[in-house]
Nucleic acid binder design. Structure first.
Length: 909
DNA sequence: GACTCCCGCCAAAGC
DNA sequence: GCTTTGGCGGGAGTC
């Protein structure tokens, strides 16, 4: 082992490890000289240390005391040299160094000795880990046995064994080492790393960590998470029910622990925690995880109810331990996320990109043994592999979530019935339409047809654009990897299925239309617009992300959001990784936006409530559009529910709607005028122009609009800047957005554009969160759709009224248009329900967690449209709850998961 | 004062 | 009964 280590040390490692030493050099010689690290690294032969002087003979003041020698050595040797030497002669030196140390200890006075002791930093686990890693090659030859004797290592590194355990446990979680026997481990290096990460990612997805993260974030925003206060029972419930306490260790085939002891301990072990921690990174987008969130999740798994400060602190401590080791492995990097509430420590994944688990990853065991590859076709299989028959092991999956997911999936399937590839939007759309309830279905169909007819060219253009966008996105590493079978719906579906949560996909690819209800149409839009690229859109709408955000709107949004936006800073101080770049900030904004949408409640509570109201209004306006096209049909349908409140709401809603409509029309008109002014002769050109316009997409923009559902206006706004919505509204939206979402894990995190690309995009597909994240995707979709819409509209709708019409149709076209109706319905109810916005926002997950009492009264509601849509024979639970909940719609559209959960709750209740 | 995280007690598991 | 593992949290060092 040593041999290998000596030869294999990587430059990086050297540098890292050397840093601390540099620090030492800078510090007073005394300290430096005696620092532990120095001692352990100095070459024996160079000085007296080699020959341990007899302690008693050496006088403290003596120039040739170990201390003085060390000083000389230190000053003479460069960090690199020391590192090299360390690796080279570590083994030989160890004993001598120890002796020297002993001598020092014996001969220096208390204070002196203390001073001579290595500083805290020098004793850090991270540094220790560097030393440990330096001993072994990253990729040891399988031929030779690389054994690790803990005692030996501890002695050589001059640390207590306890510390070595900490390191080994984390390495074990990554399968970089495996326990061979008592006090003995085998070094595998990074051979298994990629596989392990894939497996972890997969498991993380299955466990819906993304959702958990989002839930936590939501909660934070909603309640500032206070440990003392009445803690959200929901939270507790959600996590408590997790039964995560039984978390098990994820193993790779062939890498099972050989020692029973390893598995015997209750698994809150560092090793399991480490895996979970890694999962969080792999599953989240951006791949930044704040300690707080991670701790909460880990605690949650152990029963959130018990969450108390001490426990939380303990978790944090452990996470630091783990993080130090992972940092040494260069898998993560410490950063800081600045949020409203301050700066939070977080870590950013800097390890290798984990390829999509899309194709059921083949877990290969390697280790030293010939790689065994298993093809896993289903999630279940994967899970099985990951959890090799160890009795208790069940990964933290939240049962309720699973149920929900399944239910949802089933429902969707049923609903869609279109066994085929829902992906193909166009095709799927039709299918979906067919599925729609009469009126509703027709509307979308009409809209669709209209759109298609009117904007074939536009579509083509869109396609091109989207493709280009995709290409751009693809350029990002993450994206590329994702095997997305582009064109076919099937692939997308597949991916969806592959994903642990089939849920997500639903919103996009698989069930696009259906789910969309209100999700802001975003989904629906996406579908429409990108038929050919449905897969793309569905999967993730990276293209959106890619789009530049030069718009004024964006800026505005950004500015607003920026306040909220968090900054990520590296510890080193290269702060603001994310930063200042407007584009970046915008990107970051996206998330927030989404989230905000999600957690409408929160928003309400906040000062931005007003803004939210705007959003809501927009929503309503969306509804208006739909309503307009649909007429009061919906209303009537709802009416049946007969709730007086409903009626009342309807009335109010109507009023608002009307007002909104006017505004909309005006906006539309102005937009169109603007377009005209801008010389957009041909439809295509127009489209292009618009799209170019940064569609700016809009990342922020669309998100912003999301709620409102007015993509068109947005786009226009983008152009003109002011178009569709007033700044105020924008601001409102933005603000809302900001609050909520961010990186699921880290909270609102401003991410650099690049990061977003890489991370975000994939996130959709990959992470289970997708479901929850749908908003993001949705957002993206909407944007595109906007363009499309615009284009189509532009061409066809020359005047406000017509534009409105188109707009409406488009909405309808949302496929989900039909679906949306229900959503709208929901929206309308919103007022009635405790939380109006929730509905409006795509609060993906939020809903689920929402503590907010589901509106009690609605349960029975039949709302035809909605129910029909969502209700599936098989999924009564889900459906019913949906219909019942005012926000149900939203939930459904966004994260079906949530909906179901609620339902579950409700039903359970 | 908050953040980090070292340190080592002590109990469970293993032999 | 001794050793190995490793959970846990006090509290010190840093920022």
């Amino acid at each position: 082992m040593q041999q290998a280590g000596g030869e294999m040390g990587t430059g990086d490692k050297e540098n890292h490890s050397s840093e601390p030493y540099r620090g030492v050099l800078k510090t007073p010689l005394k300290q430096a000289a005696t620092s532990h690290s120095v001692l352990t690294e100095i070459r024996p032969d160079c000085q007296p240390l080699t020959t341990p002087p007899k302690p008693k003979e050496i006088l403290p003041a003596d120039p040739w005391t170990p201390t003085s020698n060390l000083k000389m050595l230190i000053s003479a040797a460069s960090p690199e040299i020391r590192s090299r030497e360390q690796r080279r002669e570590l083994s030989n030196t160890t004993s001598e160094v120890l002796q020297a140390k002993h001598c020092l200890q014996e001969h220096l006075s208390g204070d002196e000795y203390e001073k001579s002791q290595p500083s805290r930093k020098e004793k850090s686990l991270g540094l220790l880990c560097h030393k440990f890693l330096a001993r072994y090659p990253d990729y040891p030859s399988t031929a030779e046995n690389n054994y690790i004797c803990l005692d030996e290592v501890a002695e050589e590194l001059n640390v207590e064994r306890r510390r070595i355990y900490d390191i080994v446990n984390v390495l074990e979680s990554l399968h970089m080492v495996s326990r061979l026997a008592k006090n003995r481990y085998t070094w595998h290096g990074r051979h298994n790393l990629s596989k392990t990460l894939q497996a972890l990612k997969k498991v993380g997805e299955e466990n819906k960590y993304t959702q958990q993260i989002q839930m936590i974030k939501k909660r934070e925003y909603e309640h500032e998470f206070d440990f003392d206060g009445e803690r959200n029972e929901e939270t507790a419930r959600s996590f408590g029910s997790n039964e995560h306490s039984e978390m098990s260790f994820v193993e790779l085939p062939g890498m099972e622990f050989r020692a029973a002891s390893v598995n015997s301990r209750k698994d809150k072990s560092l090793r399991v925690m480490s895996q979970k921690f890694v999962m969080l990174f792999l599953v989240s987008t951006p791949q930044i995880v704040s300690l707080e969130v991670a701790a909460k999740i880990l605690i949650g798994e152990d029963q959130l109810e018990d969450l108390d400060k001490s426990k939380f602190k303990t978790k944090i401590r452990r996470l630091y331990d783990i993080a130090n080791v992972l940092s040494s492995l260069e898998l993560i990097k410490k950063v800081h996320v600045t949020e409203e509430r301050g700066r939070k420590p977080a870590f950013k994944w800097t390890g290798p990109e984990v390829l999509p688990s899309i194709q059921d990853t083949k877990l290969e065991t390697t280790s030293m043994t010939p790689p065994i590859s298993e093809s896993i076709t289903s999630k279940e299989q994967c899970s099985k592999n990951l959890f090799p028959s160890r009795g208790k092991q069940n990964f933290t999956r939240h049962p309720s979530l699973m149920k929900l997911v399944k239910t949802i999936e089933n429902d969707r399937r049923k609903i869609q019935s279109a066994p085929t590839s829902p992906v193909k939007i166009s095709a799927s759309t039709d299918q979906n339409l067919s599925a729609f309830p009469s009126k509703m279905a027709q509307v979308p169909a009409m809209a669709k047809h209209q759109l298609e007819g009117q904007s074939k060219k536009a579509k083509e253009m869109k396609m091109k654009l989207s493709r280009s966008a995709l290409e751009c996105n693809l350029s990002s590493p993450e994206v590329v990897p994702r095997p997305e079978p582009p064109l076919t719906a099937a692939p997308s579906q597949q991916s969806a299925l592959t994903q642990p949560l089939g849920v997500c996909p639903p919103s996009h690819s698989s069930v696009p239309p259906v789910i969309l209800p209100h999700t802001h149409s975003g989904v629906s839009y996406a579908i429409y617009l990108h038929p050919s690229q449905a897969h793309t859109v569905t999967t993730y709408s990276p293209s959106f992300m890619l789009q530049p955000l030069p718009c004024a709107n964006v800026t505005g949004i950004k500015s607003i959001n920026s306040k909220v936006l968090n900054k990520i800073t590296t510890e080193e101080g290269d702060n603001q990784i994310a930063t200042d770049d407007p584009a970046k900030s915008l990107t970051a904004t996206e998330r927030p936006t989404i989230k905000s949408e999600t957690s409408s409640q929160r928003c309400l509570k906040r000062p931005q409530a007003l803004q939210e109201n705007n959003v809501i209004k927009r929503y309503r306006s969306d509804e208006e559009s739909l309503d307009t096209s649909l007429g009061e049909s919906i209303k009537n349908e709802r009416a049946p529910s007969n709730s007086s409140q409903m009626n009342h709401e309807m009335d109010n809603f109507q009023e608002e709607r009307e007002n909104k409509t006017e505004t909309l029309d005006q906006n539309m008109a102005s937009c169109y005028d603007r377009c005209k002014r801008e010389d957009i002769p041909e439809d295509e050109d127009k489209i292009k122009t618009k799209q170019d316009i940064p569609v700016a997409f809009a990342i922020p923009a669309h998100e912003t609009f999301f709620p409102s559902g007015y993509l068109i206006p947005l786009t226009q706004c983008t152009h003109g800047n002011k178009a569709g919505f007033s700044d105020k509204e924008k601001a409102g939206i933005c603000s809302l957005q900001h609050t909520t979402y961010s990186s699921p894990i880290a909270g609102v995190i401003p991410v650099t554009a690049p990061e977003l690309k890489a991370v975000n995009i994939p996130a959709f597909h990959i992470t289970p969160l997708n479901i929850m994240l749908s908003p993001t995707s949705i957002a993206a979709a909407p944007v595109l759709s906007n363009a499309c819409l615009n284009s189509s509209n532009t061409s066809s709708a020359q005047n406000p009224s017509s534009s409105v019409l188109n707009f409406t149709l488009q909405h309808v076209g949302l496929i989900p248009a039909g679906v949306q109706v229900p959503a709208n319905t929901v929206v309308q109810r919103v007022p009635v329900s405790s939380q109006p916005e929730s509905g409006s926002h795509s609060s993906e997950n939020m809903n689920l967690q929402e503590e907010k009492p589901c509106v009690p009264k609605e349960p029975q509601e039949p709302q035809a449209a909605t129910e029909n849509f969502f209700r599936t024979p098989g999924g009564p639970n889900t459906v019913s709850s949906l219909s019942a909940n005012s926000d149900g719609t939203n939930r459904i559209s966004q994260g079906s998961l949530y909906i179901p959960q609620r339902k579950l709750e409700v039903s359970e209740d």
